[in-house]
Design a protein around this nucleic acid. Structure first.
Lengths: 216, 216
DNA sequence: GAATATCTGTGAAAGCAATCACAGATAGTT
DNA sequence: AACTATCTGTGATTGCTTTCACAGATATTC
Protein backbone atom coordinates (compact mmCIF):
# COMPACT_ATOMS: atom_id res chain seq x y z
CA UNK A 1 0.00 0.00 0.00
CA UNK A 2 1.01 3.56 0.54
CA UNK A 3 2.93 3.12 3.75
CA UNK A 4 2.63 5.27 6.81
CA UNK A 5 -0.05 7.71 5.76
CA UNK A 6 -2.61 5.00 5.17
CA UNK A 7 -2.12 3.37 8.53
CA UNK A 8 -3.95 6.21 10.20
CA UNK A 9 -6.54 7.21 7.59
CA UNK A 10 -9.98 7.48 9.10
CA UNK A 11 -13.03 5.58 7.94
CA UNK A 12 -14.73 8.82 6.99
CA UNK A 13 -11.90 9.80 4.71
CA UNK A 14 -11.98 6.42 2.96
CA UNK A 15 -15.71 6.82 2.51
CA UNK A 16 -15.23 10.15 0.83
CA UNK A 17 -12.36 8.95 -1.34
CA UNK A 18 -14.69 6.30 -2.69
CA UNK A 19 -17.24 8.99 -3.41
CA UNK A 20 -14.73 11.39 -4.99
CA UNK A 21 -13.51 8.71 -7.33
CA UNK A 22 -16.97 7.91 -8.61
CA UNK A 23 -17.83 11.56 -9.08
CA UNK A 24 -14.59 12.11 -10.97
CA UNK A 25 -15.07 9.06 -13.18
CA UNK A 26 -18.49 10.32 -14.18
CA UNK A 27 -17.10 13.64 -15.24
CA UNK A 28 -13.87 12.70 -16.90
CA UNK A 29 -13.79 13.10 -20.66
CA UNK A 30 -16.72 15.48 -20.64
CA UNK A 31 -14.51 18.52 -20.95
CA UNK A 32 -13.22 18.20 -17.39
CA UNK A 33 -9.59 17.18 -17.58
CA UNK A 34 -8.83 19.14 -14.43
CA UNK A 35 -10.79 19.85 -11.30
CA UNK A 36 -10.43 22.29 -8.42
CA UNK A 37 -10.99 21.33 -4.83
CA UNK A 38 -14.01 23.60 -4.70
CA UNK A 39 -15.54 21.92 -7.76
CA UNK A 40 -15.12 18.45 -6.35
CA UNK A 41 -16.39 19.73 -3.02
CA UNK A 42 -19.53 21.05 -4.70
CA UNK A 43 -20.18 17.67 -6.31
CA UNK A 44 -19.60 15.78 -3.09
CA UNK A 45 -21.49 18.28 -0.91
CA UNK A 46 -18.53 18.93 1.37
CA UNK A 47 -16.20 21.89 1.90
CA UNK A 48 -13.13 22.52 -0.27
CA UNK A 49 -10.92 22.26 2.80
CA UNK A 50 -12.35 18.82 3.46
CA UNK A 51 -11.46 17.68 -0.03
CA UNK A 52 -7.89 18.93 0.24
CA UNK A 53 -7.47 17.31 3.66
CA UNK A 54 -8.78 13.99 2.39
CA UNK A 55 -6.44 14.11 -0.58
CA UNK A 56 -3.44 14.49 1.68
CA UNK A 57 -3.36 10.72 1.99
CA UNK A 58 -3.04 10.08 -1.75
CA UNK A 59 0.24 10.64 -3.54
CA UNK A 60 -1.17 13.33 -5.74
CA UNK A 61 -0.09 16.90 -6.01
CA UNK A 62 -2.59 19.32 -7.39
CA UNK A 63 -1.15 22.20 -9.32
CA UNK A 64 -1.92 25.75 -8.38
CA UNK A 65 -4.25 27.55 -10.78
CA UNK A 66 -5.10 24.36 -12.62
CA UNK A 67 -6.28 22.12 -9.81
CA UNK A 68 -5.98 18.36 -9.96
CA UNK A 69 -5.69 16.23 -13.06
CA UNK A 70 -8.86 14.16 -12.98
CA UNK A 71 -7.22 11.15 -14.55
CA UNK A 72 -4.27 11.19 -12.18
CA UNK A 73 -6.50 11.69 -9.19
CA UNK A 74 -8.68 8.71 -10.10
CA UNK A 75 -5.56 6.61 -10.57
CA UNK A 76 -4.12 7.66 -7.23
CA UNK A 77 -7.35 7.09 -5.32
CA UNK A 78 -7.60 3.69 -6.97
CA UNK A 79 -4.07 2.91 -5.80
CA UNK A 80 -5.29 3.54 -2.26
CA UNK A 81 -8.69 1.89 -2.36
CA UNK A 82 -8.39 -1.09 -4.67
CA UNK A 83 -6.45 -4.29 -4.23
CA UNK A 84 -3.98 -4.69 -7.10
CA UNK A 85 -5.59 -7.87 -8.40
CA UNK A 86 -9.17 -6.98 -7.53
CA UNK A 87 -11.03 -8.03 -4.43
CA UNK A 88 -13.59 -10.76 -3.90
CA UNK A 89 -16.53 -10.46 -1.54
CA UNK A 90 -18.96 -13.01 -0.18
CA UNK A 91 -22.67 -12.44 0.39
CA UNK A 92 -24.50 -14.31 3.11
CA UNK A 93 -28.29 -14.28 2.86
CA UNK A 94 -29.93 -14.29 -0.55
CA UNK A 95 -33.36 -12.98 0.40
CA UNK A 96 -34.97 -9.84 -0.95
CA UNK A 97 -32.21 -7.59 0.29
CA UNK A 98 -29.45 -9.99 -0.68
CA UNK A 99 -30.73 -10.20 -4.25
CA UNK A 100 -31.05 -6.43 -4.47
CA UNK A 101 -27.44 -6.15 -3.35
CA UNK A 102 -26.31 -8.70 -5.92
CA UNK A 103 -28.09 -6.91 -8.71
CA UNK A 104 -26.87 -3.55 -7.48
CA UNK A 105 -23.19 -4.49 -7.43
CA UNK A 106 -23.20 -6.64 -10.52
CA UNK A 107 -20.35 -5.14 -12.55
CA UNK A 108 -20.67 -1.77 -10.87
CA UNK A 109 -17.12 -1.47 -9.58
CA UNK A 110 -14.21 -2.97 -11.53
CA UNK A 111 -12.09 -3.53 -8.43
CA UNK A 112 -14.71 -5.42 -6.43
CA UNK A 113 -16.82 -8.46 -7.18
CA UNK A 114 -19.25 -10.54 -5.15
CA UNK A 115 -18.08 -13.99 -6.12
CA UNK A 116 -19.87 -16.29 -3.69
CA UNK A 117 -23.29 -16.25 -2.05
CA UNK A 118 -24.67 -18.41 0.72
CA UNK A 119 -28.21 -19.10 1.88
CA UNK A 120 -29.86 -21.46 4.29
CA UNK A 121 -32.54 -22.28 1.71
CA UNK A 122 -31.18 -25.43 0.02
CA UNK A 123 -33.19 -24.84 -3.15
CA UNK A 124 -30.93 -21.91 -3.99
CA UNK A 125 -27.78 -24.05 -3.97
CA UNK A 126 -26.15 -24.20 -7.36
CA UNK A 127 -28.12 -21.33 -8.82
CA UNK A 128 -26.25 -18.41 -10.33
CA UNK A 129 -27.74 -14.97 -9.64
CA UNK A 130 -26.25 -11.93 -11.36
CA UNK A 131 -23.13 -13.91 -12.10
CA UNK A 132 -22.72 -15.04 -8.52
CA UNK A 133 -22.91 -18.69 -7.54
CA UNK A 134 -25.09 -19.66 -4.55
CA UNK A 135 -23.89 -22.24 -2.08
CA UNK A 136 -25.59 -23.98 0.80
CA UNK A 137 -24.73 -22.48 4.16
CA UNK A 138 -22.88 -25.63 5.22
CA UNK A 139 -20.21 -24.97 2.61
CA UNK A 140 -19.40 -21.52 3.92
CA UNK A 141 -16.07 -22.31 5.57
CA UNK A 142 -14.98 -24.64 2.83
CA UNK A 143 -15.70 -22.21 -0.03
CA UNK A 144 -14.19 -19.23 1.76
CA UNK A 145 -11.00 -21.07 2.62
CA UNK A 146 -10.54 -22.11 -0.96
CA UNK A 147 -10.90 -18.56 -2.23
CA UNK A 148 -9.27 -15.20 -1.76
CA UNK A 149 -12.31 -13.70 -0.06
CA UNK A 150 -11.41 -11.32 2.77
CA UNK A 151 -14.68 -9.46 3.27
CA UNK A 152 -18.37 -10.31 3.40
CA UNK A 153 -21.84 -8.80 3.35
CA UNK A 154 -24.31 -10.12 5.92
CA UNK A 155 -27.97 -9.88 4.88
CA UNK A 156 -29.61 -12.55 7.02
CA UNK A 157 -32.32 -12.25 9.70
CA UNK A 158 -31.23 -10.91 13.08
CA UNK A 159 -31.44 -14.31 14.73
CA UNK A 160 -28.83 -15.84 12.42
CA UNK A 161 -26.46 -12.91 12.11
CA UNK A 162 -24.09 -13.46 15.03
CA UNK A 163 -23.55 -17.10 14.21
CA UNK A 164 -22.81 -16.21 10.59
CA UNK A 165 -20.38 -13.51 11.69
CA UNK A 166 -18.52 -15.97 13.90
CA UNK A 167 -18.19 -18.43 11.07
CA UNK A 168 -17.04 -15.73 8.66
CA UNK A 169 -14.36 -14.57 11.05
CA UNK A 170 -13.27 -18.14 11.69
CA UNK A 171 -12.92 -18.58 7.94
CA UNK A 172 -10.54 -15.64 7.73
CA UNK A 173 -12.86 -12.77 6.81
CA UNK A 174 -11.49 -9.45 8.09
CA UNK A 175 -14.24 -7.06 7.06
CA UNK A 176 -18.02 -7.35 7.40
CA UNK A 177 -20.77 -5.12 6.04
CA UNK A 178 -23.75 -5.93 8.24
CA UNK A 179 -27.32 -5.25 7.12
CA UNK A 180 -28.91 -7.43 9.80
CA UNK A 181 -30.78 -5.36 12.38
CA UNK A 182 -28.57 -6.39 15.26
CA UNK A 183 -25.08 -5.31 16.34
CA UNK A 184 -22.42 -7.95 15.82
CA UNK A 185 -19.54 -8.85 18.07
CA UNK A 186 -16.30 -9.43 16.23
CA UNK A 187 -12.74 -9.77 17.53
CA UNK A 188 -10.23 -6.95 17.48
CA UNK A 189 -8.79 -6.45 14.02
CA UNK A 190 -11.96 -7.32 12.12
CA UNK A 191 -13.53 -4.28 10.52
CA UNK A 192 -17.27 -4.04 10.96
CA UNK A 193 -19.77 -1.67 9.40
CA UNK A 194 -23.35 -1.81 10.66
CA UNK A 195 -25.87 -0.47 8.14
CA UNK A 196 -29.12 -0.77 10.03
CA UNK A 197 -31.99 0.40 7.84
CA UNK A 198 -34.46 0.59 10.70
CA UNK A 199 -32.09 2.89 12.56
CA UNK A 200 -31.63 5.04 9.48
CA UNK A 201 -35.31 5.32 8.76
CA UNK A 202 -36.30 6.08 12.33
CA UNK A 203 -33.61 8.74 12.46
CA UNK A 204 -34.77 10.39 9.25
CA UNK A 205 -38.36 10.26 10.49
CA UNK A 206 -37.36 11.89 13.78
CA UNK A 207 -35.44 14.78 12.23
CA UNK A 208 -38.06 15.32 9.54
CA UNK A 209 -40.63 15.69 12.28
CA UNK A 210 -38.42 17.94 14.35
CA UNK A 211 -37.74 20.07 11.32
CA UNK A 212 -41.44 20.46 10.71
CA UNK A 213 -41.94 21.33 14.36
CA UNK A 214 -39.20 23.94 14.24
CA UNK A 215 -40.79 25.62 11.27
CA UNK A 216 -44.14 26.04 12.97
CA UNK B 1 -42.00 16.79 21.97
CA UNK B 2 -39.72 16.89 24.92
CA UNK B 3 -38.74 20.53 24.73
CA UNK B 4 -35.29 21.92 25.07
CA UNK B 5 -33.25 18.78 25.45
CA UNK B 6 -34.37 17.37 22.13
CA UNK B 7 -33.52 20.47 20.17
CA UNK B 8 -29.84 19.70 20.49
CA UNK B 9 -29.78 15.90 20.40
CA UNK B 10 -27.25 14.61 17.89
CA UNK B 11 -28.00 12.29 15.03
CA UNK B 12 -25.77 9.66 16.54
CA UNK B 13 -27.72 9.64 19.76
CA UNK B 14 -31.02 9.26 17.91
CA UNK B 15 -29.53 6.37 15.97
CA UNK B 16 -28.59 4.63 19.17
CA UNK B 17 -31.91 5.31 20.85
CA UNK B 18 -33.58 3.53 17.96
CA UNK B 19 -31.23 0.62 18.47
CA UNK B 20 -31.66 0.54 22.25
CA UNK B 21 -35.41 0.41 21.91
CA UNK B 22 -35.33 -2.56 19.59
CA UNK B 23 -32.87 -4.44 21.77
CA UNK B 24 -35.02 -3.77 24.81
CA UNK B 25 -38.25 -4.84 23.10
CA UNK B 26 -36.65 -8.12 22.15
CA UNK B 27 -35.70 -8.84 25.71
CA UNK B 28 -38.66 -7.62 27.63
CA UNK B 29 -40.80 -10.31 29.19
CA UNK B 30 -38.03 -12.88 29.02
CA UNK B 31 -37.11 -12.43 32.65
CA UNK B 32 -35.62 -9.00 32.08
CA UNK B 33 -37.89 -6.46 33.70
CA UNK B 34 -34.92 -4.26 34.52
CA UNK B 35 -31.70 -3.55 32.75
CA UNK B 36 -28.39 -1.94 33.75
CA UNK B 37 -26.53 0.47 31.53
CA UNK B 38 -23.72 -2.03 31.18
CA UNK B 39 -26.14 -4.74 30.05
CA UNK B 40 -27.71 -2.55 27.40
CA UNK B 41 -24.24 -1.41 26.40
CA UNK B 42 -23.17 -5.01 25.92
CA UNK B 43 -26.15 -5.67 23.67
CA UNK B 44 -25.59 -2.53 21.63
CA UNK B 45 -21.81 -2.89 21.49
CA UNK B 46 -21.14 0.48 23.06
CA UNK B 47 -19.79 1.61 26.44
CA UNK B 48 -21.99 1.95 29.54
CA UNK B 49 -21.13 5.65 29.74
CA UNK B 50 -22.39 6.07 26.20
CA UNK B 51 -25.70 4.51 27.11
CA UNK B 52 -26.15 6.73 30.14
CA UNK B 53 -25.21 9.85 28.17
CA UNK B 54 -27.69 8.96 25.43
CA UNK B 55 -30.45 8.38 27.96
CA UNK B 56 -29.98 11.87 29.39
CA UNK B 57 -32.31 13.14 26.69
CA UNK B 58 -35.21 10.90 27.66
CA UNK B 59 -37.32 11.65 30.72
CA UNK B 60 -36.37 8.46 32.44
CA UNK B 61 -34.61 8.04 35.70
CA UNK B 62 -32.88 4.79 36.25
CA UNK B 63 -32.79 3.60 39.82
CA UNK B 64 -29.54 2.83 41.52
CA UNK B 65 -28.94 -0.85 42.13
CA UNK B 66 -31.85 -1.89 39.94
CA UNK B 67 -31.07 -0.10 36.72
CA UNK B 68 -33.76 0.98 34.28
CA UNK B 69 -37.25 -0.43 34.00
CA UNK B 70 -37.28 -1.95 30.52
CA UNK B 71 -40.93 -1.16 29.96
CA UNK B 72 -40.59 2.45 31.07
CA UNK B 73 -37.47 2.94 29.04
CA UNK B 74 -39.13 1.65 25.89
CA UNK B 75 -42.06 3.95 26.53
CA UNK B 76 -39.84 6.96 27.09
CA UNK B 77 -37.70 6.32 24.01
CA UNK B 78 -40.89 5.90 22.01
CA UNK B 79 -42.09 9.26 23.31
CA UNK B 80 -38.94 10.79 21.84
CA UNK B 81 -38.71 8.90 18.56
CA UNK B 82 -42.25 8.29 17.41
CA UNK B 83 -44.87 10.73 16.26
CA UNK B 84 -47.97 10.46 18.47
CA UNK B 85 -50.24 9.35 15.64
CA UNK B 86 -47.64 7.36 13.73
CA UNK B 87 -45.60 8.58 10.81
CA UNK B 88 -46.06 8.00 7.09
CA UNK B 89 -43.17 7.64 4.68
CA UNK B 90 -43.00 7.66 0.90
CA UNK B 91 -40.75 5.46 -1.22
CA UNK B 92 -39.54 6.66 -4.59
CA UNK B 93 -38.14 4.00 -6.88
CA UNK B 94 -39.65 0.51 -6.81
CA UNK B 95 -36.80 -1.43 -8.38
CA UNK B 96 -34.94 -4.30 -6.75
CA UNK B 97 -33.77 -2.21 -3.83
CA UNK B 98 -37.10 -0.42 -3.44
CA UNK B 99 -38.96 -3.70 -3.24
CA UNK B 100 -36.49 -5.09 -0.74
CA UNK B 101 -37.05 -2.00 1.39
CA UNK B 102 -40.82 -2.37 1.16
CA UNK B 103 -40.68 -5.99 2.19
CA UNK B 104 -38.18 -5.23 4.92
CA UNK B 105 -40.25 -2.50 6.58
CA UNK B 106 -43.63 -4.10 6.09
CA UNK B 107 -45.07 -4.05 9.61
CA UNK B 108 -41.65 -3.97 11.20
CA UNK B 109 -42.09 -0.81 13.25
CA UNK B 110 -45.48 0.13 14.67
CA UNK B 111 -44.75 3.86 14.60
CA UNK B 112 -43.66 4.07 10.96
CA UNK B 113 -45.31 2.94 7.73
CA UNK B 114 -44.40 3.32 4.09
CA UNK B 115 -47.77 4.34 2.70
CA UNK B 116 -47.02 5.48 -0.82
CA UNK B 117 -44.57 4.36 -3.50
CA UNK B 118 -43.69 5.98 -6.81
CA UNK B 119 -41.98 4.64 -9.90
CA UNK B 120 -41.33 5.88 -13.41
CA UNK B 121 -42.44 2.52 -14.80
CA UNK B 122 -46.13 3.07 -15.61
CA UNK B 123 -46.93 -0.62 -15.43
CA UNK B 124 -46.45 -0.51 -11.66
CA UNK B 125 -49.10 2.15 -11.18
CA UNK B 126 -52.03 0.89 -9.16
CA UNK B 127 -50.25 -2.19 -7.89
CA UNK B 128 -50.06 -2.81 -4.18
CA UNK B 129 -46.75 -4.22 -2.93
CA UNK B 130 -46.43 -5.27 0.71
CA UNK B 131 -49.46 -3.22 1.55
CA UNK B 132 -48.11 -0.12 -0.16
CA UNK B 133 -49.81 1.42 -3.17
CA UNK B 134 -47.68 2.34 -6.21
CA UNK B 135 -48.32 5.57 -8.07
CA UNK B 136 -46.93 6.92 -11.32
CA UNK B 137 -44.19 9.47 -10.82
CA UNK B 138 -46.32 12.25 -12.21
CA UNK B 139 -48.63 12.02 -9.19
CA UNK B 140 -45.84 12.55 -6.68
CA UNK B 141 -46.66 16.12 -5.68
CA UNK B 142 -50.38 15.53 -5.69
CA UNK B 143 -50.30 12.40 -3.54
CA UNK B 144 -47.81 13.86 -1.07
CA UNK B 145 -49.75 17.05 -0.62
CA UNK B 146 -52.89 15.12 0.11
CA UNK B 147 -51.23 13.04 2.80
CA UNK B 148 -49.36 13.54 6.01
CA UNK B 149 -46.06 12.34 4.60
CA UNK B 150 -43.07 14.27 5.89
CA UNK B 151 -40.21 11.96 4.98
CA UNK B 152 -39.20 9.83 2.01
CA UNK B 153 -36.83 7.11 0.88
CA UNK B 154 -35.07 7.63 -2.45
CA UNK B 155 -34.11 4.42 -4.26
CA UNK B 156 -33.84 5.55 -7.87
CA UNK B 157 -30.84 5.57 -10.24
CA UNK B 158 -28.26 8.30 -9.74
CA UNK B 159 -29.37 10.24 -12.79
CA UNK B 160 -32.89 10.75 -11.46
CA UNK B 161 -32.12 11.31 -7.79
CA UNK B 162 -31.59 15.07 -7.62
CA UNK B 163 -34.73 15.83 -9.58
CA UNK B 164 -36.73 13.54 -7.29
CA UNK B 165 -35.23 15.18 -4.22
CA UNK B 166 -36.20 18.63 -5.50
CA UNK B 167 -39.75 17.52 -6.08
CA UNK B 168 -39.98 15.87 -2.68
CA UNK B 169 -38.77 19.01 -0.95
CA UNK B 170 -41.17 21.14 -2.97
CA UNK B 171 -43.98 18.87 -1.83
CA UNK B 172 -43.12 19.48 1.81
CA UNK B 173 -40.88 16.53 2.65
CA UNK B 174 -38.43 17.45 5.43
CA UNK B 175 -36.39 14.25 5.70
CA UNK B 176 -34.84 12.08 3.00
CA UNK B 177 -33.12 8.72 3.25
CA UNK B 178 -31.05 8.51 0.08
CA UNK B 179 -29.89 5.18 -1.33
CA UNK B 180 -28.98 6.59 -4.74
CA UNK B 181 -25.22 6.60 -5.31
CA UNK B 182 -24.99 10.37 -5.59
CA UNK B 183 -24.97 13.14 -2.97
CA UNK B 184 -28.12 15.24 -2.98
CA UNK B 185 -28.46 18.96 -2.52
CA UNK B 186 -31.32 19.98 -0.27
CA UNK B 187 -32.14 23.33 1.33
CA UNK B 188 -31.34 24.19 4.91
CA UNK B 189 -33.79 22.58 7.29
CA UNK B 190 -34.29 19.39 5.31
CA UNK B 191 -32.65 16.42 6.96
CA UNK B 192 -30.70 14.18 4.62
CA UNK B 193 -29.12 10.81 5.19
CA UNK B 194 -26.97 9.35 2.43
CA UNK B 195 -26.67 5.57 2.58
CA UNK B 196 -24.36 4.81 -0.29
CA UNK B 197 -23.81 1.07 -0.58
CA UNK B 198 -20.89 1.40 -2.93
CA UNK B 199 -19.14 3.65 -0.44
CA UNK B 200 -19.86 1.21 2.38
CA UNK B 201 -18.63 -1.81 0.48
CA UNK B 202 -15.48 -0.14 -0.78
CA UNK B 203 -14.73 1.02 2.74
CA UNK B 204 -15.20 -2.45 4.21
CA UNK B 205 -13.05 -3.90 1.44
CA UNK B 206 -10.31 -1.37 2.15
CA UNK B 207 -10.16 -1.98 5.88
CA UNK B 208 -10.44 -5.74 5.49
CA UNK B 209 -7.42 -5.61 3.23
CA UNK B 210 -5.52 -3.30 5.53
CA UNK B 211 -6.31 -5.56 8.45
CA UNK B 212 -4.94 -8.54 6.57
CA UNK B 213 -1.85 -6.54 5.69
CA UNK B 214 -1.32 -5.53 9.29
CA UNK B 215 -1.45 -9.11 10.43
CA UNK B 216 1.24 -10.27 8.06
C1' DG C 1 -27.99 0.90 61.75
C1' DA C 2 -23.41 1.38 60.13
C1' DA C 3 -20.51 -0.40 56.54
C1' DT C 4 -20.06 -2.10 51.92
C1' DA C 5 -20.98 -2.59 47.21
C1' DT C 6 -22.62 -1.00 43.03
C1' DC C 7 -25.44 1.61 40.46
C1' DT C 8 -26.89 6.34 37.90
C1' DG C 9 -26.18 11.13 36.34
C1' DT C 10 -22.96 14.39 34.92
C1' DG C 11 -18.89 17.88 35.05
C1' DA C 12 -14.37 17.55 33.23
C1' DA C 13 -10.94 15.63 30.15
C1' DA C 14 -9.49 13.42 26.10
C1' DG C 15 -9.84 12.22 21.40
C1' DC C 16 -11.43 13.02 16.60
C1' DA C 17 -13.00 15.47 12.74
C1' DA C 18 -13.99 19.64 10.25
C1' DT C 19 -12.89 24.31 9.39
C1' DC C 20 -10.10 28.38 9.24
C1' DA C 21 -6.62 30.99 7.52
C1' DC C 22 -2.39 31.78 5.59
C1' DA C 23 2.33 30.70 3.44
C1' DG C 24 3.99 29.36 -0.82
C1' DA C 25 3.18 28.48 -5.72
C1' DT C 26 1.72 29.53 -10.38
C1' DA C 27 -0.55 31.58 -14.11
C1' DG C 28 -2.22 35.77 -16.40
C1' DT C 29 -1.90 40.81 -17.22
C1' DT C 30 0.05 45.13 -18.12
C1' DA D 1 9.45 41.91 -14.74
C1' DA D 2 6.43 43.42 -11.27
C1' DC D 3 1.61 42.98 -9.85
C1' DT D 4 -2.70 40.66 -9.15
C1' DA D 5 -5.56 36.85 -8.58
C1' DT D 6 -6.36 32.39 -7.15
C1' DC D 7 -5.06 28.03 -6.27
C1' DT D 8 -2.96 24.01 -3.01
C1' DG D 9 -1.09 22.07 1.32
C1' DT D 10 -1.16 22.34 6.10
C1' DG D 11 -0.46 24.23 11.11
C1' DA D 12 -3.71 26.01 14.26
C1' DT D 13 -8.26 26.29 15.87
C1' DT D 14 -12.84 25.16 16.70
C1' DG D 15 -16.49 22.11 17.50
C1' DC D 16 -18.36 17.72 18.37
C1' DT D 17 -18.37 12.98 20.51
C1' DT D 18 -16.84 9.79 23.63
C1' DT D 19 -14.77 8.42 27.77
C1' DC D 20 -13.27 9.17 32.47
C1' DA D 21 -14.10 9.56 37.09
C1' DC D 22 -16.59 10.71 40.95
C1' DA D 23 -20.60 12.59 43.86
C1' DG D 24 -24.86 11.09 45.32
C1' DA D 25 -28.27 7.34 45.74
C1' DT D 26 -29.97 2.87 47.11
C1' DA D 27 -29.96 -1.74 48.13
C1' DT D 28 -27.60 -5.53 50.95
C1' DT D 29 -24.91 -7.50 54.63
C1' DC D 30 -23.40 -8.17 59.22
Amino acid sequence: MNGDKLRSVSEKTINRLSLYRRLLENRFGKGHEHVFSHELAELACVTPAQVRRDLMCVDNSGSTSRGYSVQELVREITAVLDAPGGQRIALVGVGNLGRAILSYFSGRRPGIAITAAFDSDPSLAGRVINGCRCHPMSELSEVLRGSEIGAAIVAVPASAAQDIADRLVAAGVRGILNFAPVPLKVPEGVFLEHRDMTMSLETVAFFARRSLGDAE
